[in-house]
Design a protein around this nucleic acid. Structure first.
Lengths: 99, 99
DNA sequence: CTTTTATATATGGTAATGCGCATATGCGGT
DNA sequence: ACCGCATATGCGCATTACCATATATAAAAG
């Protein structure tokens, strides 16, 4: 129960949900890229990513100056299904790039 | 996006999630029953149910002194799938009655 | 060793959330 | 009309969440 609550709280914030959407392409993204895409300030983005990491949704890796975030490959199936369902519910406009 | 966030916030609270779990049996439950099952005070339970109603997850109906709550039958498929996935992730202990 | 770029964190302010308590309201029974 | 049960709501408080600003850390480059 506690686990599900933590996951839901982590997802229930626009910037964090946006980050999950971007990271769910399976690739790595550095903080600076997420900042740009989601139009977030540096400290905001950093804190939100720390929250997602703490919730076990993502993992990070130092690469020179950058910190690369990616989907946690060991995320349990139960929880992965929730994330997928949430992302599937988002309007396409959220998925398409501003372009 | 806004819709998903509202749903997630509504679910991200133990008493509310517990109520959803109980109501997802498809039947009606009065507030007093939910209070008892979830060990919540009257005002707490009432407010949480108001939140779930506002989020569109449940509907209510006056029946004499009681207010009967039930799953919103017009909940969109996208959102219903999320709720189902969340409930499926809960440990069995949460689903089984205290007996 | 200083500068630049990327990221994290400390600080302090504001707003949102959840709660208990008290009170109000709705409804049936007497 | 009054009482009692079920539910809703006003109020104040405590906790938490989110934010911007400023500063600290880390790594690469010159």
């Amino acid at each position: 129960m506690q686990t599900a609550i933590h996951l839901l709280s982590a997802l229930a914030e626009p910037t964090r949900l946006g980050a999950i959407r971007l990271l769910w392409d399976g690739r790595e993204h550095c903080l600076c890229e997420l900042m740009r895409e989601l139009d977030a300030t540096q400290s905001r983005m950093s804190r939100h990513m720390a929250a997602l990491k703490h919730a076990g949704l993502v993992v990070d890796r130092r690469d020179a100056q950058w910190v690369r975030y990616r989907r946690n490959p060991h995320l349990s199936d139960n929880l992965g299904i929730i994330v997928d369902a949430v992302l599937a519910s988002l309007p396409d406009a959220a998925t398409r790039k501003a372009a």
